[in-house]
Write a protein that binds this DNA or RNA. Sequence first.
RNA 1: GCGGCUUUGGUGAAGUGGUUAACACACUGGAUUGUGGCUCCAGCAUGCAUGGGUUCGACCCCCAUAAGUCGCCCCA
Length: 421
Amino acid sequence: MLTNAPRGTKDILPAHVDAWLFVEEKIRDICKKYGFKEIRTPIFEHTELFHRGIGEGTDVVDKEMYTFLDRGDRSITLRPEGTASVVRSYLQNKLYAENSFTKLFYVGSMFRYDRPQAGRMREFHQMGVEAIGEENPSADAEVILLAVNFLKSLGLADLKLSLNSVGCPKCRPVYRKALQDHFRDKLDSLCGDCRDRFERSPLRILDCKADAGKDFIENAPKITDCLCDECQEHFEQVQRYLTEAGVEFELDPRLVRGLDYYTKTAFEIKYDLLGAQSAVAGGGRYDGLVEQIGGKPTPAVGFAAGLERVLLVMEQQKLFPPKETKADAFVVALGDFAKIPAFQLLQKLRDAGLHAEMDYAGRSMKAQMKQANKAGARFALILGEDEVRESVVMLRDMEKSEQQKVAIEEIVKKIIAEVKG
RNA sequence: GCGGCUUUGGUGAAGUGGUUAACACACUGGAUUGUGGCUCCAGCAUGCAUGGGUUCGACCCCCAUAAGUCGCCCCA
């Protein structure tokens, strides 16, 4: 227990850090190109923020939050997603004052008390962007393009972009009612879960795996048939922008998002081979959220990508050739007499910008040579009593298996010439 | 929160109701005194997820718990 990380958490070990750094670098690259600025918000917030932002009744809020009372009896929650925090910060810091259109991105840990699975951790990492203050469909398209191009820049292939519109407070109730009317006399044929969903979120019935394929599911009214004129027009424009940008997508009338704040555009990027947790990125428009949290009515659109899932796909597609870190030089010290001079030499090599290693345990020469080999060292610098007295170093080229004596003052220069040349 | 499968050393794993828990890789040391990658030799789990129980005796049987994994739910 003592030596186990809590359930659903994972150490990112040295062998994987390179991959994470690579992904983070790509995130910053692409966001810069699209004009999004990085923002870093606290890992915990007042619980109320998520209740208001994400919505009571959603699974995330009702059963997945890490909520606790702090010592001042405040209810605190580890953030389960990034959007609410970013919007809170946007309002608190009056970022709208600097520009009517604010484009932000973030990278960081999120927390949800879920049953862990591959691609689903209790502490997981997301990158996300939020474009706040613009209602024009080109903003939706820009965000979607950023998502697509981010994943592309990592080298990912076989991703599928699904697009839908979930309407607005004007037309969604109309659709909701149309769905309930459609399903009312077929309740008996639905699975148990779907009977529960009938009242709470009839839209989700469309997404059900158990009931998939049944006629009345296929024939159910589509939201796109119920959209109000404004939403309809918006949806068409988004599609037009995407098509013109050469992005492939498929319309999925059954794509529904689980967070209450979404309006109009909803999208998801999936990689089917990931199994159950196949959604790599998802997002959409949330025109009601800013007002919900206490600001003026402000349109906004954004998305988030799950980095663990992104990395899983990269692993599956073998986008990480294991890269070895090779030392430039390994200092081999023989006997106590050579220890200090060897240590000095080591520092000199490092000061010159070289990756240099040595043995600290005072092992046999043979053992040190093995270490040098394992470290992938290009050169072994052998320093024994004789060499120290003569002020030379035995420079052994580990690849060519050749060695020669080199004056101690020349050694750093010589290695640099060999390594850089 | 629900269901299926799994859990042996640093890693991959074999194994049987009963004296020393295979094998491989990795690691450490050595093969005439200051030289690596190949080869050879040796060392390396008082313990088989944890806690109970059955039994003369369990790593192998039963129960519980935990963790992992797959699926449901939900989401990234």
